[in-house]
Design a binder for these strands. Structure first.
Length: 558
RNA sequence: GGACAUGUAGCCAAGUCAGGAUAUGGCAUCAGCCUCCUAAGCUGAAGAUCUAGGGUUCGAAUCCCUACAUGUCCGCCA
């Protein structure tokens, strides 16, 4: 109901002040929402802002449309407190299974994320992309958009040539139970090592790149087999994190179907396109870029940037809105891509950038074999979770404990990543990753499990009647936060900042835990008991829906 | 050298885009709470002149300028 009441308040303020922007802010401790419009009017009318605020409050109070909203002022601040109807309606809405789902839209969205080179396992840097991307996919779906999640699979670049060279020349045996990505990365690391020691093999990589470009059958098979083995392992990792892509798009597609040549043909005619033999680049200095945006090599072969242009043109034919999740190292090339697409009159993608994750000893590199894999991180977190659940719930079967530990581990990993805003670079810290206290997924999962447990017991005791009469401050604070969930979904979609959702869930769990501590539910009597049980159910469902959107399992018991 | 991002308590973050009320949390520290719905919990204490210096404003963590620090990028790699 928050969105509705916010709109209503805005309307009331507009009518009372004549302002278009009514300067609504969060009310903090004072109110549900507040307005600082009196300051703005004070300047215009050269009057004391406190007096203006008083006038506005009187005007709004006299307006019959303000029923259910208590308006007051404290000095120049105009405060709005939403009343009992708001609380009741909000709690009722939150009990519906689809709570938070916004009206269906027709605008189709493609979100591309992860898209790591298939030369090794996903590491803790890559999965920041994955978690941000998958959370966005889930939020957009919750917000009513048809969404396709895509993984752009590099199946022909230099890194892949190095992998393919390794597969062709090293003849490694795949170990029993070894994942495809683990198997492939051994080749990649070793081939890089050899290339460093013997630079004379470099031309072999170049030759392979020329061959794949030309569509040489044997080379294509070698590349694609290597990529597929690795991708199979990557998919397993993604699945273990509750991440699913609707489509894997191969980079070679755009080379072979002629679409890359077509877009290069369009760019050839642009005034700022420069040539140096066969080599072609775009001079983007007018747009503020200092370097050459190379689109064709002097030997005539294609570059990543050119294939990427074709890929994005294709995506544009498939959707109304295209969003890419890219790491800090792709910032420059991302904005060059956007600029170039705009120059040729095409819609550029929206780009969500995130900063790097490094290790305390420095940055991670697949090439150097310096990284913590996502699999290791999850396994380690799961081990820790299993210890914890074994101590807490010794009576549970091994199977149940395993299931809980897994959900806790995946949740903890995802939450730790999504809770930090994307523009912040971070240093991976085991201690923090394995901390299951307050600002973590298990904290929210635990609140959910507590709510489930209360409802389960209530059921055993004969159930309860719906009741929406709340008077206690813990009840009202919780209900009012529950009311904001759809607003948060909308905000994340508009701002493309999934960490807001993590903050929301944490606050919701906080409020529930305080309520749990101070307001006995099952021991209360009559209407109070009914109302509290109704509220617990609303909170349970809101936590469940919010955790779903974060890709975290809402455990019923832990 | 240039571009982009970041700088908030011992540590890690929120708040910054759309300037307003005593700057919000967590970890660590200290003091409490399990005869009471799961203590992965709750309560309290202590801890910040929001990197520094200018400016705009009635009002700045938030906007502008400068400096410093950190990260990333600046390849006929992806």
């Amino acid at each position: 109901m928050y969105r509705e009441y916010l709109a209503k308040t805005t309307e009331l303020l507009r009518e009372a002040t004549g302002l278009e922007d009514v300067l609504i802010t969060d009310g903090g401790d004072h109110a549900d929402v507040a307005s600082t419009a009196a300051f703005a009017l004070a300047k215009q009318e050269k009057k004391n802002p406190a007096l203006i605020a008083k006038d506005i409050v009187e005007k709004i109070s006299a307006n019959p449309k303000s029923a259910g909203i208590e308006v007051s002022c404290k000095g120049p601040y105009i405060n709005f407190v939403f009343g009992a109807d708001y609380v009741a309606e909000s709690v009722a809405a939150a009990r519906k299974e689809t709570y938070g789902q916004l009206p269906e839209k027709t605008e189709k969205v493609i979100i591309e994320h992860t898209s790591a080179n298939p030369n090794g396992p996903l590491h803790v840097g890559h999965i920041r992309n994955t978690v941000i991307g998958d959370t966005l996919v889930r939020v957009f779906r919750k917000a009513g958009y048809p969404v396709e999640a895509q993984y752009y699979l590099n199946d022909m670049g230099r890194q892949i040539a190095i992998v393919a060279w390794g597969v062709k020349n090293l003849h490694y045996e795949r170990e029993e139970g070894e994942k495809g990505d683990e198997f492939i990365v051994r080749h990649y690391v070793e081939a890089n090592k050899i290339a460093k020691e013997k630079p004379e093999i470099e031309p072999e990589f170049d030759l392979m790149m020329e061959k794949i470009e030309a569509g040489d059958e044997e080379t294509v098979k070698l590349f694609h087999d290597s990529v597929d083995i690795c991708a199979e392992g990557i998919k397993e990792t993604l699945a273990s994190m509750n991440v699913h892509h609707d489509r894997f798009v191969r980079e070679t597609t755009f080379l072979w179907d002629g679409s890359m040549a077509e877009v290069l043909g369009r760019i050839e005619k642009m005034p700022d396109t420069q040539f140096d033999g066969k080599m072609m680049y775009l001079d983007l200095s007018k747009q503020g870029f200092g370097n050459r945006y190379v689109l064709r090599r002097s030997n005539g072969t294609s570059v990543y940037a050119a294939r990427d242009l074709a890929f994005h043109l294709w995506k544009n034919t498939q959707c109304d809105r295209s969003i890419d999740v890219l790491g800090a190292d792709h910032k420059l090339i991302g904005s060059q891509l956007q600029t170039t697409l705009s120059l040729i009159g095409e819609r550029p993608p929206e780009i969500v950038n995130f900063e790097f994750v490094s290790l305390p000893e420095g940055s991670m590199t697949t090439r150097g074999g310096v990284f913590i894999t996502a699999d290791e991180l999850i396994a380690e977190t799961k081990k820790r979770a299993l210890e914890e659940v074994t101590v807490r719930r010794p009576e549970l079967s091994a199977e149940e404990r395993e299931k809980i530990a897994n959900a806790v581990a995946v949740g903890a990993v995802r939450y730790d990543i999504v809770k930090v805003s994307a523009e912040k670079s971070t240093v991976f810290d085991w201690k923090e990753a394995l901390d299951f206290e307050r600002q973590s997924a298990p904290y929210a999962q635990y609140a959910h499990a507590r709510a489930c447990s209360i409802l389960e017991k209530a059921k055993e005791e004969g159930g309860f009647a719906e009741c929406y009469e709340f008077s206690d401050s813990y009840e009202i604070a919780l209900a009012k936060h529950i009311a904001q969930f759809p607003y948060v979904i909308e905000k994340v979609v508009v701002e493309l900042r999934p960490h807001l959702l993590a903050t929301y869930v944490r606050d919701l769990a906080d409020l529930f835990n305080s309520f749990y501590r101070f307001d006995p539910v099952l021991k209360a009597e009559g209407k109070v008991r009914d109302a509290r049980l109704t509220l617990v159910d609303a909170c349970r469902n809101t936590l469940h829906q919010a955790l779903d959107v974060l890709g975290i399992e809402a455990l019923e018991s832990m």
